[in-house]
Design a protein around this nucleic acid. Sequence first.
DNA 1: TGCTATATATCGGTGTTCTGAATATCGTCG
DNA 2: CGACGATATTCAGAACACCGATATATAGCA
Lengths: 107, 107
Amino acid sequence: MREPTFLVLAALLEGPKHGYALLSAVNDLSDGRVNLQVGTLYGALDRLSRSGWVMESGTEIVDGRHRRYFTLTDTGARALAEETARVTARANKAAALLAQHRKGFAL
Amino acid sequence: MREPTFLVLAALLEGPKHGYALLSAVNDLSDGRVNLQVGTLYGALDRLSRSGWVMESGTEIVDGRHRRYFTLTDTGARALAEETARVTARANKAAALLAQHRKGFAL
DNA sequence: TGCTATATATCGGTGTTCTGAATATCGTCG
DNA sequence: CGACGATATTCAGAACACCGATATATAGCA
């Protein structure tokens, strides 16, 4: 799973959101480091819908603008939890090796 | 940076390694979850060499078999440290959101 | 001789993301 | 009224990393 996809799922943990709202949510979540492109977002949303990790949860019209809402499914939440555990384990291992590396070669 | 590339850099923190050794090192590092393909490895090694994150550090012939050694550069170690920090921050944020989500959510 | 392990290398195909443009509607400013 | 910015979505094309298959060669073992 790539970073944009991960962040989209994470943003949806807060509750159902529409596309444009996800753009700023992902931006916030990553402390501004990831500037999600619209093309990336809707591509990811389509992919995640097909694999059952998110669900379209109805449309709404606000000020004449069409909004498509997306909700995280239980499957999606579980997948995100697994991915988070996996990534954490990896990062911890790398951190340990980095500490050792610094000790051995000094700075 | 994707998982295989990340793991290659992490494996090189232990010291210079040749291609084939990296294959098993990455496998060990990921607890067998990532089975690095040769195509991925040499592709990554070429890329990382071009960007100055790893360096070819000489060849050796052992039992008639040619070995190309690769070493992590300081730039590469720094990049890996940054990536690790970045990934850790992301994972922590997701973990916090997941905990909130399980509790019954509503932000 | 054939099989396995070691060791390096290339190539085409695939999936995810990025780039960039196009479409549409509403509110506001001049 | 008409231009413009903000909101909201869609899509085509390219870039890039990864995967799987394939190829080469040496050494050891049955």
